[in-house]
Amino acid sequence: MRCVRWAALLLLLGAAAARPPVAAVNLRPSFGGAVLEGHITAGAGDELTGVWSAGGRARLLKCTPRCTAVQAIPLSGTLRLGTETPYRIAVSGDFRTGQHVKLALRFGNLRVLNIEATVLRAQ
């Protein structure tokens, strides 16, 4: 009986780790493009390895203390994104307020999440 409980617990934990990623993001125009704002939720230990739009591949940035390009952004549950967060995603292109932009997010486990972001008013 005890083995059955442990097996059920391991199965439940495995299902939680394999949960598909979810994102709720918008774009905020900035110099030469836009910055993603919002949050991305994925399983612990996962990573965001790329973001693409019609304009090409976005830059993944680590901004502590200065912004530098990185190959991946680590995820440990929910990643908050914005102009004042440690990790940022810069999308190149010419955007206008209210425009809907399709994005493809690729994660370390080779999952791809297709989303649509709305361009917000510049600050």
Rank of each mutant, 00 (worst) to 15 (best):
M1P: 14
M1N: 07
M1H: 14
R2F: 10
A7M: 11
A7K: 05
L9E: 04
L10C: 05
L10D: 00
L11N: 03
L12P: 01
L12A: 14
L12Q: 09
R19P: 08
P20S: 12
P20F: 04
V22D: 08
V22H: 06
V25A: 06
V25W: 00
N26T: 15
L27P: 06
P29S: 09
P29L: 04
P29V: 00
P29G: 01
G32M: 00
G33V: 05
E37Q: 14
G38V: 02
H39F: 10
I40Q: 00
G43H: 07
V51G: 05
G55W: 02
A58D: 08
L60P: 10
P65H: 03
P65A: 10
P65W: 12
C67M: 05
T68V: 06
V70E: 11
Q71K: 15
A72I: 05
G77F: 03
T78Y: 02
T83E: 13
E84F: 11
T85P: 00
T85S: 14
P86S: 12
A90M: 12
A90Q: 13
S92D: 15
D94E: 15
R96N: 11
T97E: 14
Q99D: 09
L103A: 13
A104I: 14
G108V: 12
G108I: 06
N109P: 01
R111L: 07
L113F: 03
N114A: 14
E116P: 05
V119A: 11
R121G: 11
A122S: 12
